[in-house]
Design a binder for these strands. Structure first.
Lengths: 332, 332
DNA sequence: CGCCGCCTTTGAAGCGCTTCAATGCGTGAG
DNA sequence: CTCACGCATTGAAGCGCTTCAAAGGCGGCG
């Protein structure tokens, strides 16, 4: 600071450039460069009473959805001149609340809390620092509590199923997984609704123990005979990993996808596109979720009092790939 | 603070509990609870001149290796009473240096910088705030510059290849990828060394355009005839995705793995274990890398002056799975 | 009974910045 | 030529905490 001229002026060039004449601004800039000056964010936050950082806690970094969420959130935060700090909870309650506390102490401008599980929400809602803008991602919560941004899984299930029907499939199977997972349950509801709207009867629903590729492999193997017999011509799997396993098993058994049976997955995972037969899937708007969430939290931070909580539900989208291209055979 | 008694005492109960009598400590604790008191981390850092946070910048959150690194780092940081802030650069130079700057302004205790690419290191080394403990992860750099922790890819390649040889394979193929990737090049060197040590001749090396499942599928398809002809009986693929694609293509073509050919991958990805035929692979000690890195950075932060930079190279490990179980056929 | 030393507690100083009232200066109007 | 007004700059106050020297209280020893 002594390099150029004053002291409080330096602050002005940093925060209110308009108040400062061009020449002094330059002098100060030069001095800062020469001194390798790095403003102290802590002091700034303390003095200004506000902080240009927002925090996000993610439940599972191995799920690309959440990585997308982070990317979207960073995009928005960055655009607003804020930094995004990521914390990973590995779905552990204890770590979720620890990270919440850390963010509260850091006096971040706001928090994006991403949860998978409604139970965790109940358990943790007490830990969310009152008075600190917090928006829930991936879980719809009462607007009386906070803003939230989630994705309509029931709609996604409906879209996947309707797509199968519209491309001529009639004998449909839903492959789910443990009913305890909220998203799976909702996707299954969407399946049922779409089937019902067309007055079709689902062939059946299958619930393997998990939702991974190996589970899909098992399901696929079990379905080979029914497909050959023409009893099944469309499969909606609740996750892409499941779908990939199914397709893999079917292919290995000589069943043609999509000629003999169409398969649709969910999530738009790498497993879906990086497959010998690319798999049609429902893409979750992860980046949008992050972006919208960050915008909401920043809005709440900026207008604390006029702010009204909102609950947004985003729509997933259908990504058509080879595994469900219309079959040559006539529908029916 | 006024709830109990004093002011500076509150600080003591937070930082030097030993100086405070049990009764006052309790009174203060009770008051803090009643007031929902959350200490201001910014003020603490400012006053104390130190910060209980370390930052890590990761190049790619969709790579489970780096997620593991973060997990390990958080583990160590946590144990030392520090919080870990994650920033994702998506391998973009511009974001790497932005995050570095953010951490510098936040006056974190230290930074873990994880890079994939030597070029980025050269470009960014100027941005790493001098005077702020920084350790490089995943890339070995001159100890004159900073500490670093990396994994020995050449050794990994050697281990994978030696495993193939020791389980009786003699006609080996290396499947790499773009030579521009440092890790691929090192793994290939390890392959060459292992083969050379046994005075074998590699059948050949294949460099598909990428290192994903689809690339592997192509390579696998191309190798079917040679395997049937007995010209090839072992494959070392530079990534698990590649290996998974290869196994998938071979299986689809009716080639038996591991009976007809053994396959070894690299990375210990989900793709390796979540495959119908689980794939033998080389596991990178990601968590260890993070843990050791965090320990180093904290050590440097605590003893600024006595600190000597160190360069640690960790060893990968072999994970044997079905894809390379010794074949029934006699070796030779 | 008085003094000393130790364990606790206190209060003031200051961390690096922002903010804001106050000052200084140059300019156009009178 | 003078006065007033506006823009640029300044300096002091204070953000919430830690630290440290100094004060207070207590028991034990002489």
């Amino acid at each position: 600071m002594l390099a150029g001229v004053s002291l409080g002026t330096v602050s002005n060039v940093l925060n209110h450039p308009s108040r400062v004449s061009a020449v002094t601004a330059q002098k100060v800039a030069r001095a800062m460069a020469k001194l390798d000056y790095v403003p102290d964010g802590n002091a700034r936050s303390l003095a200004a009473g506000s902080n240009r950082t927002i925090g996000i806690v993610l439940p599972d970094l191995s799920n690309s959805l959440f990585v997308d969420v982070a990317r979207g959130a960073e995009d928005s935060a960055d655009r607003a001149g804020h930094a995004l700090m990521i914390a990973n909870s590995d779905t552990r309650l204890e770590r979720e609340s620890r990270h919440l506390r850390t963010f509260a102490q850091a006096r971040v401008a706001g928090i994006l809390l991403t949860l998978n599980d409604e139970d965790h929400y109940e358990a943790i809602v007490g830990d969310t620092p009152k008075n600190l803008p917090t928006v829930m991602l991936n879980l719809a919560v009462p607007v009386s509590r906070s803003c939230s941004v989630s994705v309509d899984n029931e709609l996604g299930g409906w879209m996947a199923t309707t797509h199968l029907i519209e491309t001529g499939r009639r004998r449909l199977v839903f492959v789910g997984g443990p009913e305890s997972l909220d998203p799976v349950r909702d996707r299954s509801k969407g399946f049922a609704r779409a089937v019902g709207e067309r007055s079709l009867q689902p062939v059946r629903a299958i619930s393997p123990p998990g939702v991974n590729r190996a589970d899909g492999w098992g399901v696929g193997t079990a379905l080979v005979d029914e497909i050959r017999a023409g009893v099944v011509d469309g499969i909606f799997a609740a996750t892409d990993l499941l779908a990939a396993g199914i397709v893999q098993a079917l292919t290995a058994a000589g069943v043609q996808v999509p000629e003999d049976v169409a398969v649709v997955g969910y999530d738009n995972n790498q497993a879906a596109w990086d497959s010998p037969i690319p798999i049609t899937t429902i893409a979750q708007p992860g980046e949008d979720m992050g972006r919208v969430g960050a915008d909401l939290v920043l809005e709440e931070a900026q207008r604390r009092f006029e702010h009204q909580h909102r609950s947004l539900v985003l729509e997933p989208s259908l990504v058509v790939r080879a595994s469900s291209r219309p079959s040559a055979r006539p529908p029916g």
